[in-house]
Structure formats: structure tokens, C-alpha cells
Design a protein around this nucleic acid. Structure first.
Lengths: 332, 332
DNA sequence: TTGTAGGCGTTATCAT
DNA sequence: ATGATAACGCCTACAA
């Protein structure tokens, strides 16, 4: 593979000159510019980005940590970030945090090793303190869907609790009182918040909140199925269910279909969603929307701005929004 | 950020020695090894991969070109490839070909610029000749879901036509004769093949194939909705539909729901699928499965093998498989 | 406007 | 077992 020296030789100039015309830096005569470009063309020369990074000690690269690549949720998040970085002319490196504190740490380390000059972190297992420590490094970063005291200016957050409250209130307003809850893994903050929204809504309406109405799952379809089954067996008389993720909602649908229980005639449902899986089900499921795409775009813009040395204006807090479809009926 | 020189200085040895202990190359005394490692620890030293690549002129990096990051289809593909590369201890760079020949070319160029030592190409718009030319470069590559004469040994392929035939035959065997077809963009080979499977099945059964039964869409939900609508308006008497993608199938469901047409009572459906979207719909849709995950894993293993200098055994051809669910009824 | 030379952080080849 | 030293491909003062 041709190097800058080859180009220089062919064009009959020094390597410095070649570098100048390539980077459009300094003054070069029309004439040599043409000669150089011809040589570049002829040799099919492509600058080595590693050498360039070494020389400039800058990489123009951002890093993104996500849990996984699997599923629409992450792919939308990823796509938004990538598109923004493309727009900004920055490279993007992606690393998976998988599902443990340790591998999230590794993912970050890997990106730092690659000399990323900015990070977007969508981590679920790292402790607040560890993230706070990161602030000591010079690499700027943005926290996606996480709020940490002392890092407020770097957090793109969503009001999960309020969202849950909104969802359950919708059910309450339609006359439902006996409402099951398919919760996510409550050892994780956001899942806990979604659950607390449920509790809060019930309490505000003076409705008793019974432990047997609640089942936990790992945000996945199978878990949703099991949770729905568990709730139903303990409470055959529920009239509604609140699901904390769309995959779990799909699982709940699986069971209801099996038992020939109709939505919304027999049971009403409202669910969290972010990638419109709930719109594929029949009937369409009323949801509270978690706008991961918009949040990802916001994080990407913010990071880009930081990397360019700008100081950050306050980050937007995203609010939940109810999307009414056909899965809730009025109870009389 | 500490460099190898810093470590060398602190440990009181030469840079060469540090390099040796880091790479476990050559013979080093226990004693200095320890001293070096302590220095590494203390300085929090991390080797610069760019410098390393420069020096070794090797990157240990594979590249992947996909159309987009959006949607489960690509994210599953991506995840499989990444996981295999992780297993092999290789880096993976991903680039999007978007939807044009030009940007697919750019995507490849970008990966070559980054000195990828192997490529997995899932391209839709590049001409056969352009791919054939690629063979002249020294970089090995695998073509995912594409078959090109002269490149057979580098192609991971699926029998789209046979899959379509299987799907439509299933309908025929259940007594359906008037069968609509929601085709993908037929200027693309695989979409055309899926369509030809439909034609072939009809012809084999001596069923007339009417142009008005066919509508084309861009593999997306909206398009599926429109296509279904078009077919239905021209042929109110169809008893079944064959959909060439799961998103389009979701769109078809949207319309049918709107018109209060029941599946499978009024209309039977069989669809292509690859990420189980069809299992979320009610009723579950009978599908022919396009095993993108397995194919991606296969491609990744093959490429990895090539990159390691091994010669490739023949690549597997993936066969379609019918997954019966509840969307097809017997016509009598 | 252009060339020279040093440096970016490694590895690799010789010596010692 | 270890140390010089020369690459690797590029950029960037500084000089001319």
C-alpha cells in the first residue's frame, strides 16, 4: 500500500508538501497541487489514519457503550448516535457492556484504549461512584438514561416514575382498580422507578396495592409470559395490567392468547414502549413512550459539542407521553 | 497519557524491554518483568494501539458493511458478527452502506482506509463486477446473502426462491388458489427471487398468476399496508396472501384490522421472517424463516478463518424452513 | 512556496 | 537478558 513517500517521489516533491495539499494547510502553488493530486490518484494513495493519529495525537473518535447489539431498542439508539457523528464528521466506536459491572468497565477501558475523545455511556451496572470517578479523566462523556448527583450536566434523563404513574393513572381513570404489574428487574434503578410510578398512582387514588399483583421479569418476552401467568393465577379477577416493557407485553399477550382471554374485553393493558413493538400486536396497545431515539440523538449532539470544546447548555429532561390505542376499555 | 518511554524510565530499563514483557516475546528475567509490571501499574499505562499498528503494520481488525443499523434484522446480524470476532480476539469496525451503490462503495473504502484485514459485505446495490474486482485487492472478504459466479467460495447464501416456493406451496396445499403477493423491491435480486418462488409455485400447480394479485413495496410496514390495500381493492375475492417480509406483513395486518378482515378466517397469510416479528402478531403468522443470524455467524467464522490464513472449506448453503403457526386455514 | 528534520508510540533487528 | 537504533506513515515547526 502506497505511503506518502511514494506519492512525494512520484510527484517530485517532499513529503511535507504532499501532506500540505492533502490537508489543505499552508500555501501551495496550483501547479504542484495538481501534480500531487495526480500522483495520489495514480498510486491510489490513502492516508494511514493510524499514522495520522499518532502524529497529531488526536483521533476524532467518539465511543459508545451499550448493553448489547441485540434488538430494536439498541439498534435505534446506535443508529441515532452514528448518524449524528457522521454529520459531525467524527468516527464512532461501539462497545458492548453486556450485563455486568465488570464488562461495562472493560467496554469503557477498550474505548479509552482506542483513544476515544468522548464517550456516551448507556450503562446499567456501574456504580455512581465509578462514574463520578470517570470525571477525573480528561475524556468528556455523557450519561444516557441515567441521573447522578454531581453529574447533572452530563445526564440525558427520562422521567420513568412519572411515566409509570401516567400509564397506571390512565387505567385508574378508566375505572380499573385491580391492576396487575409486570415489573422489570427492580435492582436496576430505571426499572424500579417504572414500578414506583405504579405504586404512586395507586396510592394517590387510594387503591390498595397488593404484593400478589406484582411479578418481576427481565424485560424479556418469556419473562412477561411467566409474570402474567403468575399474576393471573393469584388474581383471576384483575381487570387490567401494566407492563414495564414492550417485550414483556408481548409475552403477556402470548399467555392471554393461550388462555383465550381477550384484550381489552377481559383484560386491559397499558405498556411501556420505545420501538413500536406494541403497535404490531392486536389490538394495538396503549403505551407510555420512552423516547430512546430522541434521547440518543440528544446525547450524541451534546457529546459532539463537548468534544468540540464547547460548553454544554443544560440538557433536556425527556417527559413521558401517553399513546392511546385499543387495549384499554372503560370499566363500569 | 503515559507512554512506553515513561514506563521504561520508571522501571529503569529500555523501551525494548518493556515491549518484550508486554508482548511476552523473548526472554526476560523474572526480576525485570516484575519491575516493569509495577511501573505499568503505577503509571496506569495502556499501549497505544495506533502506534502498535504502525509498527507491526497489522491491525487485527475486521470490517462489516451493512445497509443500516436500524431494526432487529441488522442488529441481530451485527451482534452475531461481533460476538464471533470477540471470540477470535479481533476488532470489528462497522460501516453503513445505506441504500445506494455509491455509499456502499464509500463504506467499503472507509473500512479499507482503516486498514481492515478482512471484510464481511452485506451489500445490496453494488454490481457483481465491482465485487469481482474486489478480489484483486489482497483483503479477504465474505459476501453475506449474495451469490456471484466466480466468488462462490466466498458467498454465504440462502435459497430465497425455494423459500418463496415453500411458502406459497403451503397455501396451495391448504386449498388456496387466489393468492395475493406482497413483493419486495424487485430490482434487488433476493427480493426478485422471493417473488419468483411465488410464480414458480403457482405455475407448478397450474394456477393462473394474475398481475393484479401482485403489489410491490420497500420491505417496510407502510408499504405492506399500501400493497395489501392495492391487492384487495383489485381482488376482493382473494383467500390468501404471501408476504415477502415481516414488516410488510405487519403492514398488511394493519389494513386487515382496519377493514375488520379476520386472519385466518377471511384471509390466510404466510410471510417471510427472520427476527420473529411475526410471532408477536395475533394470530401467530406462519412463516418461512430466513436465518440471518446463523448466516451472519457463518460468515464471521469464515472470514475469521480466512484472516488467520486458513483456506476455506465450502460454505454452507442455508435452506428455508416452514414455521407453521395460526395464520393459514384449510379452504374447502 | 517548498524542503529538512524531529517527533508521535510502538516493534523488530542487531548487537552486546 | 537487555539495550541501541531504525523503521512504521504522517504532521509540523523551522528554515530556506
Amino acid at each position: 500500500m502506497a505511503s506518502i513517500s511514494d506519492v512525494a517521489a512520484l510527484a517530485g516533491v517532499s513529503r511535507a508538501t504532499v501532506s500540505r495539499v492533502l490537508n489543505e494547510t499552508g500555501q501551495i502553488s496550483k501547479c504542484t497541487k495538481i501534480r500531487v493530486n495526480q500522483a495520489v490518484e495514480k498510486l491510489n494513495y490513502r492516508p494511514n489514519p493510524f499514522a495520522r493519529s499518532l502524529a497529531t495525537s488526536s483521533t476524532n473518535t467518539a465511543g459508545l457503550v451499550v448493553t448489547s447489539y441485540r434488538g430494536s431498542f439498541f439498534s435505534e439508539l446506535l443508529a441515532e448516535v452514528q448518524e449524528e457523528m457522521d454529520r459531525q464528521g467524527k468516527f464512532l466506536l461501539i462497545s458492548r457492556g453486556k450485563r455486568s459491572r465488570k464488562s461495562e468497565l472493560q467496554a469503557i477501558q477498550k474505548l479509552m484504549d482506542m483513544r476515544c475523545e468522548g464517550l456516551i455511556l448507556h450503562t446499567r451496572n456501574l456504580h455512581d461512584e465509578e462514574l463520578l470517578e470517570l470525571k477525573n479523566e480528561k475524556t468528556p462523556f455523557i450519561l444516557l438514561d441515567r441521573k447522578i448527583n454531581g453529574l447533572e450536566d452530563r445526564c440525558v434523563v427520562f422521567e420513568h416514575e412519572e411515566a409509570g404513574r401516567l400509564a397506571v393513572n390512565h387505567l385508574l381513570q378508566h375505572g380499573h382498580r385491580k391492576i396487575g404489574c409486570i415489573a422489570g428487574p427492580r435492582h436496576r434503578l430505571t426499572a424500579r422507578l417504572r414500578f414506583q410510578g405504579y405504586e404512586m398512582a395507586l396510592k394517590e387514588s387510594g387503591v390498595e396495592c397488593n404484593e400478589s399483583l406484582i411479578a418481576e421479569a427481565d424485560y424479556d418476552r418469556q419473562g412477561g409470559y411467566r409474570a402474567m401467568s403468575e399474576i393471573l393465577s393469584k388474581n383471576p379477577d384483575i381487570t387490567a395490567v401494566y407492563s414495564c416493557s414492550e417485550e414483556m407485553c408481548a409475552g403477556a399477550f402470548d399467555l392471554l392468547r393461550e388462555l383465550n382471554i381477550k384484550v381489552p374485553e377481559d383484560i386491559s393493558i397499558v405498556s411501556f414502549d420505545s420501538v413500536n413493538l406494541c403497535t404490531v400486536m392486536t389490538p394495538g396497545v396503549t403505551t407510555v413512550h420512552f423516547p430512546i431515539k430522541e434521547m440518543a440523538a440528544c446525547a450524541a449532539k451534546a457529546l459532539s459539542s463537548l468534544m468540540d470544546g464547547h460548553t454544554l447548555s443544560t440538557l433536556k429532561t425527556f417527559k413521558p407521553e401517553l399513546r392511546q390505542r385499543e387495549s384499554v376499555r372503560v370499566l363500569n
